Simulated assay, not measured.
Amino acid sequence: MRYAIQPSNISEYTFEVEPAWYQTIWFKLATIIAGLALFGFCIFAYLLFQQRQKTRNEVAKKQKLQLELKALYAQLNPHFLFNCLSSIQGLINQQDFRGANEYLTDFAQLIRGLLTNSAKEETPLQQELQTLEMYLKLEKLRFGFSYNIGIDMSIDLSAISIPSLLWQPLVENAVKHGVATLEASGRINIFINKVDDSLVIVIKDNGKGFNALKLQSGLGLRLAQERIERLNELQNGQPIELTFNSNFEHGTEIILTFTHWFL
């Protein structure tokens, strides 16, 4: 400080000016932290919204696929029942009334089993085998062929499940397009094996074979293939594969592979 009348006389004083609260370093740090927290919260909220939207879309897609599967299953049952009723009609036309009565008794048991499992997406392999053997028994009464079912002893049939009636159209084709005209010389072999962690079902017949591309336009096989497509969209890392090996001299082999089914 310098007085006007004594400019040579200088006085010095030391003092400190406190900054305003919004000028403090702590406020600035708190503002930065709060800004980063808000930015992080916005990112988290956006990602959460995206994830929930994705989950909703996945659930909607899964529900849609499940409804499509139920629709295909509902179509498959009438197709299966129609074939059984056609077999009964064939016995009646042949005046084989005893065979028709036996067929009707077994058919009633078969229908009961189908109704029991109709609401299930998957059925224990043991029950599926019972249904399959009942069907083959019924068709054998009409066409007179023989059949054999070989099962890998390492498979616990009650502990593993497969989609209901998925293999039924494949066996029907082995009967109708393979051994139906061969009568007693016709033979169907079905093998159920465990290969690594996969379930492999092989259906063989000794018929004349068929054009797989042409036959796949039939209702039963088309429904089976559409079901497999839908199931593969739903399954996570457990795809189902259907392959045909047809030889016009040595019959047909159909392979149904349930990949990683034992995991």
Rank of each mutant, 00 (worst) to 15 (best):
Y46H: 10
A108R: 10
V171L: 09
T31V: 07
T259P: 00
F258A: 00
E16H: 12
L29C: 07
E183S: 14
E68I: 06
L170N: 10
W261S: 09
E58D: 05
K120C: 11
E18Q: 13
K62Y: 00
I188E: 04
S118T: 04
G99M: 00
S158P: 00
A100L: 01
Q109N: 15
F143Q: 11
N77P: 05
E241S: 05
P19I: 14
W21E: 04
K194V: 01
A184P: 07
F15A: 11
L219E: 09
T252A: 14
E58M: 02
P7C: 03
F44P: 10
V202S: 15
P169F: 03
S217T: 11
Q168E: 04
I160Q: 13
I162C: 01
I25W: 15
L129P: 06
G209D: 00
A37P: 05
A108S: 09
N93F: 12
N206H: 02
I10R: 10
H79N: 09
N101F: 13
S86N: 05
S158C: 01
V200M: 00
I111K: 10
K208Y: 10
K64I: 01
A71G: 08
A20G: 08
F49A: 03
I203P: 12
Q109R: 14
S161M: 10
F210D: 02
Y147L: 02
P7Q: 06
A212P: 09
K208C: 12
R222L: 06
E233L: 02
S118R: 09
N189G: 13
L91Q: 06
S154L: 02
G99I: 00
R142G: 01
N9L: 14
I190K: 11
M134S: 15
I149T: 04
W21I: 06
I92V: 10
S8T: 11
W261L: 06
V171C: 06
I155H: 03
Q126M: 09
I88Q: 05
Q95H: 11
I162Y: 00
L72I: 10
A224I: 01
S8M: 12
F27I: 07
S185F: 12
E226W: 08
L36K: 12
W26P: 03
D96G: 07
Y103V: 01
N245T: 07
A159L: 08
S164T: 13
Q216P: 02
Q127K: 02
Y73L: 15
T243F: 03
L199N: 08
L29W: 05
L76S: 08
E139D: 09
T243N: 06
P239C: 02
N101Q: 15
W167R: 08
I201P: 01
G144P: 02
Q238W: 01
F244T: 00
E253K: 08
Y147M: 07
W167G: 07
Q6A: 13
F262L: 12
L47H: 10
N148Q: 15
K204G: 04
T259L: 03
P124E: 13
Q51K: 15
L85Y: 07
A74C: 10
S87D: 11
Q126H: 06
K64R: 04
T116R: 04
N211E: 08
S87V: 13
M153I: 06
I33K: 15
I254G: 03
T55S: 13
N236V: 01
E229Q: 05
A212N: 06
N117C: 04
A4L: 12
L65A: 07
L129F: 09
G218M: 14
I188F: 03
